[in-house]
Nucleic acid binder design. Structure first.
Length: 826
RNA sequence: GCGAGCGUGGCGGAAUGGCAGACGCGCUAGGUUCAGGACCUAGUGGGCUUUACGCCCGUGGAGGUUCAAGUCCUCUCGCUCGCACCA
């Protein structure tokens, strides 16, 4: 008998798989396709445990589904543009392209050592010209469809990264990548009009039952749809102007006692111009604008307001209400003006109390409750009926919302409106290592898109980065200066590159035809392979990548380029990998790398542990002893197969069956059933693995129960072969080797997944639990499917139960066939 | 503050409303080999006593529904995540 040598076995099979091109996928309309995809990585240089986890999960599915005869596509690639490459380039005086290529090469080797069944023919690299050419092409498609536009506005600026960020990339006022404070800058930038798709991005979440609720909820919150009314207020002494305000509570319109404008509101300056308040207001506006996003939007920041000296006219009752400027009003949301109804909004309430503005209740809670402006300590924000509201008095507030809105529309004073929290996607990045935005600025023709035939706009590679503090294309004259495609006149190129999230918003489509050179993807291939049936990745992309990718898919759908409206049918958000209760990090010294696990135990052990330790969507705590346990299990399988291979070859065996054979077969079929359901329906790989462990234990028990010469060769052989097949998705190398040891031809991964026979699960005798008043008081062994009456009789017949029931009246007897009898007695 | 999720042995974790703790780790005892991170067997939630195929308690806490609740309902505590002046 040989010992289990993981390294040797894994190298052997990896080489063979590569030589035989085992995992190549081809279009085949006669077969049902299945697209398994793990989020592609940024080539940082090294794989970490999070990578190993996501690849292990994906590979189990891919291998399982292939054995279930699906035509599986399982590709891998590189999200290769991004800041770290520039930083590394500056530090090590190496070109970002070279640095990236080296990392890719190394990480690919690591992935191969894990034995993941990727179709490497489909590998993509977003930083390669033949990829970003199409990222640029898609930008131009957006431009043609008026979905890409340039505007000057306040944008998020990260000092450390020296670039702007999209709203989704600012987390609690900090940069998502480097966690430094984000400040506001007024710049001219390119945006994608994702807000045009807000409604569909929201509504179509319903089409995604295979997505985790929490991810859908996060997207829903991010999109932030609010229904309400936009209402126009006239301004006293400014007959030409009006202030439009958005509210979700038009029913409280009669309770408005003031109006607040955002500091950036265009009317602020004209309103105070020439008045004695002008300087004060202008100073306040300037000060507020200087504050960072985090200070501006924090709830802790006190609300500050400043009276402008002007008044607005409430359109429904003609009342004059003061106009203020307030730091808490955001120009980017709604209309940048808020009507103050302090009695029914807690922010307005707080603000009114602070500045001693009048509070007028217009929604009565109803019932016994009183509504008194003098005594109220907080706003009443719930429903009620309208009071102090002229002809609307007595109307239920919910109905009042409709009625007031209808009235405003009739009188041409306002209209129903839906507002979203989501803003357009800012995609300009003032960086070098990205896809150049394919736009040319001509003095005569203005903004001119680069003609499709001139794509890609290539990144200059012969650049010297180390001298620049901020690597930017603007530093390279030969890149910047060009001629206008329209008039051949002198022109300059856009020097910003695109947000890397653009490149990852369509890579799953490129995988379907990675070499297509006439379009971003071949329509026939995309139609065959799309959508991604199972997508797997981290929760951190819930509103970043996953929202952007959905947006791109919808745009391409509208452009008639694809037939799917949503890219990812099912989504699995895998949990994080921790050790000792903390995230693995160098500073804590608790890092375990895939490399060291592969070296010490082999990839199969690492994969098995990572899948066994926890269900995929939960966080996983790395445990070295648990890894050893999994390694022991694989050795146990190894011994079982090598020992038995000799036995089933040499001993004569007997044919008659006794209880042991039936028991073994029952274990086998139960395991087949459980493993199949756990992989395919529940994604509970941990319990699937435990079922295989139980099966292995059962085979050991069989071998121990009988003398070698009495083994039933056929049944033992079948059990062993099927055990190896069940193990194949989890420990692919060991499965191949043991398959071969059992004398089988061909790859175990080409076998059909076994089916179970329900008859085999049947047992002759079952143990039935006897309860008295819900407590277990005994057990009886009876033939399976024993009729209720005789079951009850047997149960009551036993001495113990008889004793317990003595002198009691039986109220009721509940029977669960083959499981339990509960006698309720008083 | 709002929203979501989660609380089960020493640990990771199992349990279509039907025997709580599968499987694994760890631990205990015995065996075996002692050159290997070994292997095999048995045991392992807590407590009680009359040591019995015995009883009581036990899934964060308190109630409830049910013949039966880790599972369903109500309240409550704790932890994690997301959003957070969005009018």
């Amino acid at each position: 008998m040989t010992t289990y040598n993981a390294t040797q076995i894994e190298e052997k099979w990896q080489k063979l798989w590569e030589e035989q091109d085992s995992y190549r996928s081809r279009r085949d309309s006669s077969k049902t396709k299945y697209y398994v995809l793990e989020m592609f990585p940024y080539p940082s240089g090294k794989l970490h445990m999070g990578h190993m986890r996501v690849y292990s999960i994906g590979d189990v599915l891919a291998r399982y589904l292939r054995m279930r005869d699906y035509n599986v596509i399982h590709p891998m690639g590189w999200d290769a543009f991004g800041l770290p490459a520039e930083n590394a380039a500056i530090e090590n005086n190496i070109n970002p392209a070279e640095w990236t290529a080296e990392n890719i090469e190394h990480m690919k080797k690591q992935q191969k050592r894990l034995g993941v069944s990727y179709d490497w023919h489909r590998e993509v690299n977003t930083s390669a010209p033949d990829y970003y050419r199409w990222s640029q092409w898609l930008f131009l498609l957006m431009y043609r469809r008026s979905l890409a536009y340039k505007k000057k506005s306040d944008v998020n600026w990260c000092e450390t990264c020296a670039t702007v960020l999209a709203n989704e990339q600012v987390e609690k006022g900090l940069c998502w990548r480097c966690s430094s404070a984000v400040v506001t800058r007024d710049l001219e930038q390119w945006f994608l009009r994702i807000t045009d798709y807000a409604e569909r991005l929201l509504n179509d979440l319903e089409q995604l039952p295979g997505w985790p609720e929490r991810v859908k909820l996060m997207q829903q919150n991010w999109i932030g749809r609010s229904e309400g009314a936009e209402i126009a207020f006239q301004v006293e002494d400014f007959p030409e102007e009006e202030i439009r305000t958005f509210t979700t509570r038009p029913d409280t319109l009669f309770g408005v006692t003031y109006m607040v404008l955002a500091p950036e509101h265009p009317l602020v300056k004209p309103l105070v111009k020439g008045t004695d308040r002008e300087q004060e207001v202008i100073d306040f506006v300037a000060k507020t604008k200087k504050e960072s996003e985090i200070d501006r939007t924090s709830e802790e920041t006190p609300k500050i307001g400043l009276f402008t000296g002007r008044y607005a006219i409430n359109p429904v009752n003609g009342e004059k209400v003061p106009i203020l400027v307030g730091n808490y009003v955001l120009m980017a949301y709604g209309t940048g003006a808020v009507m103050g109804g302090p009695a029914h909004d807690h922010r307005d309430f707080e603000f009114a109390k602070k500045y001693d503005l009048p509070i007028r209740g217009v929604i009565h809670p109803g019932g016994e409750k009183e509504l008194s402006e003098e005594t109220m300590t907080e706003a009443y924000v719930d429903e009620g009926y309208m009071v102090n509201s002229g002809s609307f008095n007595g109307t239920e507030s919910r109905e009042g919302i409709q009625k007031v809105t209808a009235y405003l529309e009739e009188q041409n004073l306002g209209q129903y409106r839906v507002t979203y929290r989501i803003r357009d996607w800012l995609i300009s990045r003032q960086r070098y290592w990205g896809a150049p935005i394919p736009i040319i600025y001509c003095q005569k023709c203005g903004t001119v898109p680069v003609p499709e035939e001139d794509l890609p706009v290539e990144l200059p590679l012969d650049v010297e980065l180390s001298g620049n503090r901020v690597p930017s294309l603007a530093h390279y004259a030969e890149f910047v200066h060009t001629t206008c495609p329209n008039c051949d006149g002198e022109a300059t190129r856009e020097t910003d590159t695109m947000d890397t999230f653009i490149c990852s918003s369509w890579y799953f489509l490129r995988f379907t035809s990675p070499n297509c050179d006439t379009a971003p993807f071949d329509p026939g291939d995309a139609d065959y392979w799309m959508p991604v049936d199972q997508y797997i990745g981290g929760i951190e992309h819930a509103v970043l990548h996953l929202l952007y990718a959905r947006f791109f898919t919808k745009v391409l759908y509208d452009a008639g380029m694809i037939k799917v409206n949503e890219p990812f049918n099912r989504l699995l958000a895998q949990g994080m990998v921790y050790k000792d209760g903390a995230k693995m990090s160098k500073s804590k010294g608790n890092v375990v790398t895939p490399d060291e696990i592969v070296e010490r135990f082999g990839a199969d052990t690492g994969r098995l542990f990572i899948l066994f330790a926890s269900p995929p969507e939960k966080d996983l705590d790395w445990n070295d002893q648990g890894v050893e346990g999994c390694h022991r299990f694989l050795r146990r399988v190894w011994r079982l197969v090598t020992d038995s291979a000799e036995d089933i070859g040499s001993i004569s065996g007997r044919t008659e069956e006794e209880g042991h054979e039936a028991e073994l077969q029952r274990s086998l079929h139960a395991a087949i059933k459980k493993v199949s359901v756990d992989i395919e329906e529940r994604f509970n790989f941990n319990t699937a693995i435990s079922a295989i462990m139980e099966l292995v234990n059962a085979i050991y028990a069989y071998r121990q129960a009988l003398e070698k010469e009495n083994y039933n060769r056929e049944i033992l052989r079948e059990a062993l072969e099927k055990t190896v097949i069940l193990l194949a998705p989890f420990a692919p190398h060991l499965a191949e080797e043991t398959w071969e040891l059992l004398g089988k031809e061909g790859s175990v991964h080409r076998q059909h997944w076994p089916t179970y026979d329900p008859d085999m699960l049947e047992v002759d005798q079952v143990e039935v639990v006897i309860q008295v008043n819900g407590k277990v008081r005994g057990r009886i062994n009876v033939p399976a499917d024993c009729p209720e009456e005789s079951l009850i009789e047997t149960a009551r017949g036993s001495d113990r139960i008889g004793e317990l029931l003595e002198g009691k009246e039986i109220v009721k007897t509940i029977v669960v066939p083959n499981k339990l009898v509960n006698i309720v007695a008083r």
